[in-house]
Design a protein around this nucleic acid. Structure first.
Length: 110
DNA sequence: CTTCTTACA
DNA sequence: TGTAAGCA
């Protein structure tokens, strides 16, 4: 058996839950998988880079989308990029991502 | 026990 | 950025 995997809570149906928005990990969980401290995740929230959902008690709930952003910042900062710049870079990346959603541009140069 | 906030270094 | 205390 697998220790921890996705929970097929929607069998049969064609319910396609955005696996990037449905799961909400906790701080320890996110910090553990990202390899960062809880302080780091909180700092991202402080600068307004990512706004995680809050549970009833006010506990942060990070979704995979949020985690991905945090992971990107972690790498940039880990490389020596100032958190100020990393915030901007990730912010711009997010904007570009949304722009592509609206205007599917076949501009794929890899 | 885990998370949250605030504060200090 | 990391750690500490006090609280929910």
């Amino acid at each position: 058996m697998i220790p921890d995997q996705h929970d097929p809570a929607t069998p049969g149906g064609g319910d396609k839950f955005d696996d990037e928005h449905y799961p909400a990990y906790t701080m320890g969980r996110a910090a553990e998988m990202l390899g960062t401290s809880q302080n780091f995740l909180r700092s991202l929230d402080d600068v307004g880079l990512i706004e995680p959902q809050r549970s009833a008690g006010g506990h942060r709930r990070y979704s995979r989308h949020q985690l991905r952003i945090a992971a990107r910042v972690r790498e940039l900062v880990d490389q020596g990029t100032p958190v100020e710049a990393a915030c901007r870079i990730v912010s711009l990346e997010d904007q570009l991502h949304e722009a592509r959603q609206h205007h599917s541009e076949p501009q794929r140069s890899e």
